[in-house]
Amino acid sequence: MSEQRLRINSENVVHETVDGELIAIDLTGGSYYSLSGSGPAIWTLLLGGASESEICAALAVTHVGDPETIRSAVASLIEELLESELAVPGEGPGNGPAPDAPAEKAAFEMPKLERYTDMKDYFLLDPIHEVDPVGWPRPAA
């Protein structure tokens, strides 16, 4: 299991969770995503920075499920998140020790990440170019 720490790509991605479904929008590419099942719980762990093994350890405390199923699901989701650049390699201390056990554990549900690209063409037609903070200075004439 990978010890590589990852984090959500918060510079380029905004997200909101409603009724257990997380909506993430990629501000640089125009795609947007829906993450359901136990995916939002994994996303929350990644917000603070976490490795695959840390995520599995935390889910073992908060969720009920077959450890191998959870490990495999976490690995797959991490791969998808990295591929779509919703998550990026991170450093730092992460979330710290695994959370305390809740009064009642949630059943682990397979995370489902869906990608929507119907805004992509629209976005690419009229993009906003972030200019360098120091001004993207004009080259000397």
Partner: peptide, 8 residues
């Protein structure tokens, strides 16, 4: 197209 340069 109408790309926009944004400086903040």
């Amino acid at each position: 197209t109408n790309p926009v340069a944004r400086l903040r």
